[in-house]
Design a protein around this nucleic acid. Sequence first.
DNA 1: TTGAAAGCGCTAACAG
DNA 2: CTGTTAGCGCTTTCAA
Lengths: 346, 346
Amino acid sequence: MAEPDHATLEPLKVRMDDVALLARVSRATVSRVLVGHPPVSAATREKVFNAVRELGYVPNMMARGLATRSSDLVGLLLRDPRNPAYGLLHSQIQSAASAQGLQLVTAVPHWAEAAEDELAALRRLLGLRVGGLLVSTGVIKARDLEPFLESVPVVSVGRVEDHPGIYGVSYDEDTNGAILADAVAAVGHRAVAVLVTGSAVSTAENRRGTSMAARLEGHGIQVVRVAADKFGTTDEGNEDIVGLVQERRVTAAMFPNDARAVAFLRHARAASLDVPGDVSVTGCDGAGLGLDLLGLATLRIPVEAVASRALEVLADLMRDRSAPVRHELYPGVFVPGSTLAPPPPR
Amino acid sequence: MAEPDHATLEPLKVRMDDVALLARVSRATVSRVLVGHPPVSAATREKVFNAVRELGYVPNMMARGLATRSSDLVGLLLRDPRNPAYGLLHSQIQSAASAQGLQLVTAVPHWAEAAEDELAALRRLLGLRVGGLLVSTGVIKARDLEPFLESVPVVSVGRVEDHPGIYGVSYDEDTNGAILADAVAAVGHRAVAVLVTGSAVSTAENRRGTSMAARLEGHGIQVVRVAADKFGTTDEGNEDIVGLVQERRVTAAMFPNDARAVAFLRHARAASLDVPGDVSVTGCDGAGLGLDLLGLATLRIPVEAVASRALEVLADLMRDRSAPVRHELYPGVFVPGSTLAPPPPR
DNA sequence: TTGAAAGCGCTAACAG
DNA sequence: CTGTTAGCGCTTTCAA
């Protein structure tokens, strides 16, 4: 028998040489057929495909990557996948990636607190020699990325970006904050509590809170800023805000994300506060499950648009590195809800 | 100058040879230091680490993978990341993976409808020569995986698994269905609508629905099965169930996931049906954001436990392939809610 | 249009 | 303990 008994071969152990042997061509030819160029005669191509099928050959992308010094792997650096908004973003990025024919490899830092761990995650991704990088955590600073910028295109997605070498496809948090503030102002509140997350916890949320407060003040509204600096909890500041409401020092409370708003709703209920009778509440994100049933007034961030745009941009960059870097901003849309109503009469 | 001007070198272009040169040792020694064995004298190790740091060297995992024919890449085959429960599972798997020191590369089929696309996603993962595979979609059948089982360990997670070659870490959907059915029976319902998803849409949900119905019937309760076979929508069957309630043919409606239950809640509200006055409602998953505020009676599936167990198992398997294959089942815990109450008096 | 041969960057015997 | 040397599986000149 000249033919090897390939029926017993494990598919993943089949190499290109095996295919070449069976197709009676050279390895180079098999490669050309699989890569798609340069052109190969229809007849040989057919032979090759048959051999591939017969052997169940699965090309080894590691080897290909080594040889071409390229890869269609896209690294995603994510912060806290437990946050629903990030979770949705993650899903959408995932879908957008496969829509672009790119493979997504995600790294989340093990200890979300440790910036050091984020850098480790970055290095793991770079170690794989990903063809592109998506950064979605505020903890990695542009400075950390700088050394790699000329080797791999980087798009920062959903986070505020201002580095001239890093493309940004982000939520327009300033506008978002303003939209929400305007809505609260419009129904007549004159004293509002705003939960402001520390920028170390989340740059995006910090920005939202800050712009909400600023916009309110622009309307001549009195703002009580409540700080929240702990990572991973949504209950911080709620006691204080309940207190403010009970003392009638504020008639509305604005939160930088829905999870915190919902947590406050829970808190308020426990404190027998009526929403919106005693206090109006707004969130931000708009990505949760039964949010409409809950009636939370919020703002829906354009997760889908941002995700697919980010991957479009990255795919372009991977094809042609010379494209100009820009920072695109996408505002969300206000979602009315029963938790926002005019303040109680004095 | 004998030394190269490494300061201007892009870190990702630095090779092990560059490090070796700078450290004045052989490439093999650098490799040994980085891999961690066999032991290298403390002095040389120090030199190597310094050179690595100085050059910003990031080892090329593709090359390493090729050389060792191994990889700490874990492939995850996911179905529909937009489903909140899958989204949470995804996040948890992600965290569990990094906790095990494994890199997760995820593939989602582009068109969720096409089984063909799922196979393509599988091949992409295998092409990367992942060291292990996590399968979380019911569409890929055990038969499709069989050819690869001896080359790469496979753990199917969150889905029903019964193949003797594939380890299973799954939700105990039969028990889950029974728990929910018992809760509904316990408050006195005697006629219940159960939304049963087609198994093509979701094996897990199908199993839940089926077991709910069976258990109810075991209690002597009359069951109206409502079929839902379309992928991606949560509104299917809601009209019918509203009709059943209005005709007083059922006093409760059970859904195989929270998204559907919430969709029904919305529907019921639009039809001026009172929950639980006119109809009790139960969901399943328990992973949503403000579910408790909504008061939805549901069942919390043990996402975290399943995810971390799955990765523990996979990590073991990647270390030692001879471990016995088992199928582990994890039941959830009932979450009471105000949507479940005794039926209205006749 | 095809084949032969030289790497891609790294690890792992095998000597010393 | 360290250096030399063969590959890992693939792509890609370069010739034919």
